[in-house]
Write a protein that binds this DNA or RNA. Structure first.
Lengths: 124, 124
DNA sequence: CGACATATGCCGATGAGCGATATATATATC
DNA sequence: GATATATATATCGCTCATCGGCATATGTCG
C-alpha cells in the first residue's frame, strides 16, 4: 500500500532577510503592519520594499511561533489598525540570529582578506 | 480569454544562509563539494550540516549565475573530484552581502538596546 | 473626480533548501 | 570475508517563505 507519510522537517530553516528585518523593526517599539513596511524601508536604506503578502503571512507565522504578539487593536480615523510587539521569545531569537550572522560575516571578511589560489597553497 | 502570463520576479530574493556559507567557504581557497560540507560545518561551529541535495543544486545555480567556476576536475584515489573556485562576481557579491548583513545586525543590536514600550513612548 | 497615502488581507506561483535515495571506492574493525 | 564508516558526486519529490497581484475601504490633496 502507498504510504503517504507526512513530510516533517528535522532542522528549522534559517531566518530569511524579510523576517529578520521584521523582528528588527519591532525590537525598539511596537508597530502596526503598514508602519513596519515603512520602517523596514528605512532600516534597509530603501532597498527592501516589503510586499503586504510577505508582511501579513509573516506576521501570522511569527504570531503562531510566539515570537511576536498583538499589542492592541484600534480604529484610527476610521481605519482598522493592529499593533504588534516583539515577544520575549522573539527578542531572544533576534539576539541569537544577530550573533550567528555577526560570526558568519566576520568569517566571510576574514576569508576575503586571506585568499589563496588553491586549498593547499600551491600555485604554478 | 485566459491569459497564462509567465511569472517574472522583479526583485531577486536575498541570499539564504546555506548560500552565504558556501561562498564564504570558497572565499579563501578553491574547494571540492565534499570538502565544502566539512568546511561549512567548521565555519558554523557544527551547526550547519549541509545536505548534498542543497550543496550540488546550489553549486549548479551559482555556476549558472557566474558567482563560482569549476577550477579543475581530478581523480584522487579512484574517486572523481570537482573543485570549485569563487569567481570575481561571487567575490563582489559576498562582500556586498557581508556589508548588508553587518548593517542589519548593527541595527538589530541598536534597537534591542533602546527598547520603548510603545512607538510613541507612552505607557500605562 | 481622480490620484495617492493609509491600512489590512488573500491567493497562486516560484524556487531555495530539505530529506531520501543511489552509486562507487577506500579504509578500518571485527 | 563481512560490515561499517569516510570519501565523493548526483538526482528526485516535497515544503514553505517570499513574491506579485488583487481586493477592499477611508482620508487627503489638487
Amino acid at each position: 500500500m502507498p504510504m503517504s507519510d507526512i513530510y516533517i522537517p528535522m532542522t528549522e530553516r534559517s531566518m530569511q532577510e524579510p523576517t529578520l528585518l521584521l523582528l528588527t523593526a519591532l525590537a525598539d517599539a511596537p508597530r502596526h503592519g503598514y508602519a513596519l513596511i515603512q520602517e523596514i524601508a528605512v532600516i534597509s536604506d530603501g532597498r527592501v520594499k516589503m510586499r503586504t503578502g510577505t508582511l501579513y503571512s509573516a506576521l501570522d507565522r511569527l504570531l503562531q511561533q510566539g515570537l511576536i504578539r498583538v499589542e492592541r487593536d484600534e480604529v484610527i480615523d476610521g481605519r482598522a489598525r493592529r499593533t504588534y510587539a516583539l515577544a520575549d521569545a522573539g527578542r531572544a531569537t533576534l539576539a541569537a540570529e544577530a550573533d550567528r550572522l555577526r560570526a558568519v560575516v566576520a568569517e566571510a571578511d576574514r576569508r576575503l582578506r586571506t585568499t589563496r589560489p588553491t586549498a593547499r597553497g600551491a600555485l604554478a
